[in-house]
Design a binder for these strands. Structure first.
Lengths: 336, 336
DNA sequence: CGACATTATGACACCGGTGTCAAAGTACAT
DNA sequence: ATGTACTTTGACACCGGTGTCATAATGTCG
């Protein structure tokens, strides 16, 4: 079986390569008769244009890269799923590239990625979307990129995030409205801008409701389940024990719930627990976790969609958007 | 800033394109002096070969595609992580492509994928690795592929799986050894070959220990948490209630645990629960789930590695391997 | 030192498309 | 019939590499 290329199609149809190319790309100035004829040959020969050849000619790959370094599997898959949705809408494909934020390796690693696969653009997810160093590098490389879920101020690059501060504020307010005053807080990873945002949401809610902020109630996590387990120990060992715990994501909240249950504490009767993200685990455990739903897929979908628009027309205005986060109450929080 | 291509390098170094190409690919027959000179120019101009051009000339993309349709996020990320490990070892990249098994769309969808991105090979994960239709199609397309975690017999394609039947057998035996006789079973998705394997492992263990198989104790799930919740209801409503439940994966087991806890049943005192896969959730909940650890990353890593070897040398012998599954006991199972 | 093998190098076609531009064809007004 | 504008088409260069093959340079040996 011989390969079907634009040349064989042209020969078979009795027209020039260029005319075939015109039909292929729906370009104008092809007579209906010719177009018809070529299309028929496409079918007959089952012609499939070679994307690599096209890529070479147009200097495009129709591939978007997705960078991440995140312990949460569900977060990653949600990001991927949103990105894929946008990609497929525009006939792009998605290449995934997990790598580590830390170390001088990062820039080199990304450079390597760009070298080995001509990506048309890059989606950055936290913590990369917060890395000024990486952003600067990508600008020098002149490669389009979009940032997801980053609070970092940079109005020259596409950014879609959700309102972390607002979300944390609402959740804290929810706990306060249930009568809680000693509300412990588990912080996220220091490299994520969301970490500080969520923390200030918590602090501001306390402030506005006349509750004094107590540093002893704050534990430093890093978004991983493991760090949540450590923080849980620290918090549940406090005397007096706080009546509520607000963890910066659901995995850490799940870790608190696990330890609490192990210690025969009743949740929410003895202690209320809340998370952030509305990860699947939040509803896979009992009691279900009160949390803040962050529209991860939607953020990524929009970011990638805008990225692709930016790629096709670099003069497109830079898109920056903040989506709403939403409180979801489940069984893990209750009146004090 | 002008683009640095093989031509500019050649000109600058005062040699021909071809010589530059030789240096680039570490081909022999280049004098040390020339090689040195060209390498120096690479550095000076910061030359990066264009992978697309190379791809066109060699008819290769250095990209592997990964196909999946799986409700388990952790499974997907584990698959990806194993695949990436192998890819990066050989300087390949990974393109992900979730799609649905059902419907005539599948073949068309995959065909589309192959058309829009010249993949060098494809990794199939369940249920695709079990789809004879897809396998046949890929063979006609002459595109190399490797199957992960599939019990489907096909010794002409690369396959790495774990011993599902053995794993299920051991787990069931574990429950029996704890004194359980009424052991409910939740089956997985019908399209996965692992589903039947795990089921027969369960049945054989019962048989070999003189316990009569009782069809009423079997519920049909599909590996999703949701289906686990439905099956859990069915099983926990049985009278008398079984003393143990073996779910075909950890998500479904977690659903059983959740419902049991909701109903104030004590696990494992009132009922033992076990899963399969050793997904993260198995240790993120309390009590931790007794389960079977399946080396998902390792399976995928080996599969992709072999796939790449196959790509570089089609005469390579077809690799087929069965890895061991391992029993992990946690707190969710105990003496009857 | 000449005959011959071996190594080093470059010219050129090629991979399969797209972009540019000129030429040919067609429509319509004068 | 002729001029003009517009549509349709193809020739050819080009994207940035690799493969083939001829030729030039070097090494080896009697």
């Amino acid at each position: 079986m011989k390969k079907v290329t634009i040349n064989s199609v042209a020969e078979y149809a009795g027209v020039s390569k260029k005319t075939v190319s015109r039909v292929l790309n729906n370009e104008p100035n092809v007579s209906p008769a010719t177009r018809e004829k070529v299309l028929k040959v496409f079918k007959e020969l089952d012609y499939k244009p070679n994307p690599i050849a096209r890529g070479l000619a147009r200097n495009k790959s129709f591939i978007i890269g997705c960078l991440y370094d995140n312990p949460s599997k569900s977060y990653i898959t949600r990001v991927q799923s949103g990105a894929l949705e946008a990609c497929h809408k525009f006939n792009y494909n998605l290449l995934i590239h997990p790598c580590e934020l830390r170390g001088d390796e990062l820039i080199h690693n990304v450079d390597q990625l760009l070298t080995t696969s001509r990506l048309d653009g890059l989606v950055l997810t936290p913590p990369f979307s917060d890395s000024q160093e990486l952003i600067d590098f990508l600008k020098t490389q002149n490669i389009p990129f979009a940032r997801v879920a980053s609070a970092l101020e940079d109005d020259t690059s596409i950014s879609v995030r959700s309102n972390d501060e607002q979300g944390a504020y609402e959740l804290t307010e929810h706990l306060i409205s249930l009568g809680h005053k000693e509300i412990a807080f588990i912080k996220g990873h220091q490299d994520h801008s969301a970490t500080e945002k969520r923390f200030s949401g918590y602090q501001n809610a306390l402030l506005n409701h006349g509750i004094e902020f107590n540093e002893d109630l704050v534990a430093q996590g890093n978004f991983s389940y493991h760090s949540g387990a450590d923080s849980a120990k620290q918090i549940l060992d406090l005397e007096p024990m706080p009546t509520a715990v607000f963890a910066s994501n659901d995995y850490m909240a799940a870790a608190v719930l696990k330890l609490a249950t192990q210690r025969q504490l009743r949740v929410p009767e003895d202690i209320s627990i809340a998370g952030f993200d509305n990860a699947p685990i939040a509803r896979h455990i009992w009691p279900g976790l009160t949390t803040i739903a962050q529209p991860v897929e939607e953020m990524t979908r929009q970011a990638v969609e805008q990225l692709i628009l930016q790629i096709s027309d670099p003069s497109t205005e830079v898109y920056q958007k903040v989506l709403e986060a939403k409180l979801i109450t489940r069984e893990s929080t209750a009146e004090k």
